[in-house]
Structures are given as C-alpha cells and as structure tokens.
Design a protein around this nucleic acid. Structure first.
Lengths: 147, 147
DNA sequence: GGCATTTCGTTAACCAGGTTAACGAATCGG
DNA sequence: CCGATTCGTTAACCTGGTTAACGAAATGCC
C-alpha cells in the first residue's frame, strides 16, 4: 500500500529510476517496421496537426529545433513524411504524412507484440487501472511548465 | 476519469509518449554536481551492493556489460567510485563508492530543485497519490521479464 | 599437470537521440 | 529601404547505448 500524501521529493527519487529503466526498455522497441517510439510519436503529432512547421513540432515534442529538423529529415528519407513549401512564406515548411506514413501509423497502433504492450498484458486489472490513473497527473507534470 | 479495465494495448499507446517526454526532461536534470540521473542510479546500486561486479551491475540496470564498463569508467574518472581487485580472482573487480561518491549521493537525495521534484510540488495531493500508486505496477512491468 | 571451456572485463566501432553555435534566406515593421 | 525578427538547416559535439572481438584468469576434466 503506497504512502498517502507522498512527499514530492521522496516521490521524485522513487519515480526517477523507474522511468529510467522503462525508457531503456522502450528504446529497444524498434519493432518490425523499423520505426522507433520517438518516430511514431512524431508521426502521431504530424497526423494530428497536418501542415505543422518544424518549430511548432519541436515545441510540442519538447526538443530543440535543430533536433527536430534532423528527425524530420530522417522520416522524409524513409518516405513517411513530406516537407512541402508554404504558400506565401518561403521560410516555412509544411509537414504532412505520406500514404506510407499513415500506413505505418495504422499498423503500429494495433500492435500488441511490442514490449510494453506485452508486459502490460501480464498485469492484473487493478495494476492497469493504477497506471491508467497516473497518466493524466504525469501529463500535468509536463504541461505545468508550458505556462 | 480514467477508463476502468483499460485495454493493455491502448494503455501502452497512451503511456509511451508520456514516458518519452518525461524522460526527455529528466535527461536535462544534469544538475549542480554534474551527475546525470543515470549516474545517480548507478551510485545508488553500488551503495546498496558494495563490492558488486560490472556484470551484476549491468544486469541490475538492464544495460549491456560493455556499456556498464564504460559508465563505471566515467564515474571512476570523476572520482565517485573505486574499482578494486578481488581477492583470489583477478578477473573480477569490486566496485565501491568513494567518500566523494557518498557525498554526491547524500546531496542529491535531498535536492528539491531538480526538475522532477519541482514539478511534483506543483501537483495536487491526489495526483501525487495516483503517481505513487502507479510506481509499483510500473516496476512489475520490469520484473516480469526477469523470469 | 595440461588443455579446453567458461567467465569477467575491456576496447573498438558504431548508432540514435539529443544539444548549442553559427548561418542564410525570407519576412516584417518602422 | 533597411534593421530586426523568424524559420529552418548545417556542423560539431556529447551522452547513452549496442554488438563484435578480444585477452586474461579461473574452472573442469582426463
């Protein structure tokens, strides 16, 4: 039974190693289609914000602009996204999924063979609920600093 | 309100981006003393298992043996850990914290200025409880595959 | 005792995922 | 029309990993 009214600093020290190890595993989830978790996240964002630019996308994903430029280049080389010039502003670029990108996204979403999905299947329903309930608070952790 | 009896695959797809972004932030938590979260985790393990070898440590942290060797080398160069020869087996090494390593660990543990700690302080008690309650299930996710 | 096998750690070479610094081109505002 | 800003790219660099190959030491066995 977890301690109620957890001390934030103590909680941080317990949470950190868990996140660390989970992400080490997730990094290896470079599954079948050759796309990493990070790349999938990018595809999702582009799908949800068609025509978005590098800069906004970088902000959404919380990485630097040059970093985003590089990742998008990789996705473009892989044929999953398309850089299109913006009408009336030749500095900007509009990003969109290609047909191949959409296909990848569809097939990834239903994938149950990925490490995380497989491990979650092994948990009890109440454990799943506990994780489920933590997702929003964890998201709030990130949104807090957008202010 | 989170969905009860969450579908593991759906939950995985919601969880992944959260973990991804959290870890991107955590990576920048290279605070004052110049040690990263991963390095702190290592120091903690060495403290809890004094005299542990590279191989076991690598298994505990779920990374490869050569990777661990490299990280330990860095920590040794930084003067935080000490490689000592093992009595009666000259292949092995025993790892121990130096005084400096213990000092770093003490000062890190109480640090409330780190990003994660600061953000957690901004959450409601019930959100903290939700996160707290999710830690064990998340750990189980990792332990499951030790079997 | 001697030799094959296994165990332990290191090194080298490589890749992904970032970062900051510097820049060039285009747009915008006075 | 010119200075300042905005957008994206490139280059150089770092951390955190990986696999492959290896050398030295210990173990098992005949």
């Amino acid at each position: 039974m977890p301690t109620l009214a957890a001390d934030p600093t103590v909680l941080a020290n317990r949470l950190r190693p868990v996140l660390l190890k989970l992400n080490r595993q997730l990094r290896r989830e470079i599954h079948s289609l050759g796309v990493t978790g990070g790349q999938v996240a990018l595809l999702v964002q582009i799908k949800q914000h068609p025509g978005i630019g590098i800069r906004k996308l970088a902000a959404l994903e919380r990485i630097s602009v040059p970093g985003m430029s590089k990742f998008v280049s990789r996705l473009e080389e892989a044929g999953l996204v398309q850089r299109a010039p913006v009408e009336g502003d030749q500095r900007r670029v509009e990003l969109r999924l290609t047909a191949a990108g959409q296909k990848v996204l569809r097939s990834v979403r239903s994938k149950r063979t990925a490490w995380l999905s497989a491990r979650l299947h092994a948990l009890d329903p109440d454990e799943l609920d506990a994780i489920d309930a933590a997702i929003e608070p964890l998201l709030n952790l990130l949104e807090a600093e957008e202010a």
